[in-house]
């Protein structure tokens, strides 16, 4: 049992100047405000390098009507709609109860206007939070969210506003629901983003054929789980091409459900790996993934997990059967 043990020191990474005990990051929206999963015996935030808190807006939000979730083949849809008690409540009532000795805590900044992103960031800046993730990719709110994230110029404006509000590390969470994620990443990087989360959920729908209505109360929702992993891996690979020379780290995420998945993300260019939906399957999955990564490092004689980042060796274009560049499959 890994319960109670410290993760292998070779799993430790440095992320925007913060030490993560492992490359695993618990994803925003899956673990509430950091304490919920500790209800389960054997679960420890120490098994994660960082924990991203639930998306937070300036004012409290009730979120979307039920049903908010629905299982899909190899995944699930969700449309929570950024239910949260507002940034002041989070800073005053929730953060003081978190044990910052256990892991790094990252706030998730959300909003409907550029000004709101600025203001939420400013209020988190004046708190013990370790870093902030800018959520410009929430697919489940009518204003802001993905409406900003799918437009490079708007994304850049949001990042620039947040940058003015803090010197803490800023991680921009990119949407997969856009044509050119690399251009968006470049714009955000130039506006001061220190890191990226790649990817947020993909928009989807499930239909109740008896009622002829969408199952999800919000009609559409964000798809997560193993179904989206290949898409996420390619996006990480694409964003890594932008980030590599700037040494800007990526939290790769999307369908990670085991050590093999985590290794794929690291090799494709991620410095850290997000775990979300898989917790719903197996709440005690973190030590298993950590152990699997450590075993891989042993087997390959690799001293530190950070050596894996971006170690992907692409096939030469001429080796490709269709003759097209591997970064443009089917092109």
């Amino acid at each position: 049992m890994d319960v109670g043990g410290e993760p292998n020191p070779r799993l430790s990474i440095e992320f925007c100047g913060l030490r993560f005990a492992t490359p695993l990051v618990l994803l925003s929206g899956c673990v509430g405000f950091g304490e919920e999963y500790t209800r389960i015996r054997g679960f420890s935030n120490r098994d994660a390098g960082a924990v991203c808190l639930k998306g937070t807006t300036l004012a409290p939000r009730l979120g979307n009507p039920p049903h908010r979730i629905c299982e899909t083949p190899a995944g699930m849809l969700n449309a929570i709609g950024l239910q949260n008690p507002g940034v002041d409540h989070v800073v005053r009532e929730i953060l003081p109860k978190l044990d910052f000795g256990e892991t790094r805590f990252i706030a998730n900044v959300s909003g409907s206007t550029v000004e709101e992103y600025y203001e939420v960031t400013r209020r988190f800046d004046d708190s013990p939070i370790d870093a902030m993730e800018i959520n410009i990719s929430c697919p489940n709110v009518k204003e802001g969210g993905v409406a900003f994230g799918n437009d490079a110029a708007m994304s850049a404006r949001v990042v620039a506003a947040c940058r003015r509000a803090t010197r803490k590390p800023l991680i921009t969470k990119l949407s997969p629901n856009q044509t050119d994620i690399a251009s968006n990443a470049r714009a955000c990087l130039e506006s001061g983003s220190d890191a990226f989360s790649v990817i947020n959920t993909l928009m989807g729908m499930v239909v109740d054929v008896e009622r002829r209505t969408p199952v999800i109360g919000n009609n559409q929702g964000g798809l997560s789980g193993p179904a989206i992993k290949p898409i996420a891996l390619l996006k990480v690979h694409q964003v890594y091409q932008v980030c590599r020379d700037h040494r800007v780290p990526i939290i790769g995420q999307g369908g990670v459900a085991g050590a093999q998945d985590a290794l794929e993300f690291l090799i494709a260019g991620a410095s850290a790996v997000g775990v979300g939906t898989a917790l719903f399957y197996d709440p005690l999955i973190l030590p298993k993934i950590n152990r699997g990564i450590a075993d891989y490092l042993d087997r390959h004689g690799i001293a530190s997990v950070s050596e894996l980042t971006g170690s992907l060796r692409l096939h030469a274009p001429e080796a490709s059967a269709c003759g097209c560049a591997p970064s443009h499959p089917g092109g």
């Binding site: 929206g29 899956c30 999963y37 389960i40 908010r68 979730i69 719903f280």
Partner: peptide, 13 residues
């Protein structure tokens, strides 16, 4: 409908 069932996802409100 529930996903996490421990209060983490707010999916079952």
């Amino acid at each position: 409908f529930m996903a996490c069932a421990v209060g983490g996802c707010a999916g079952c409100v």
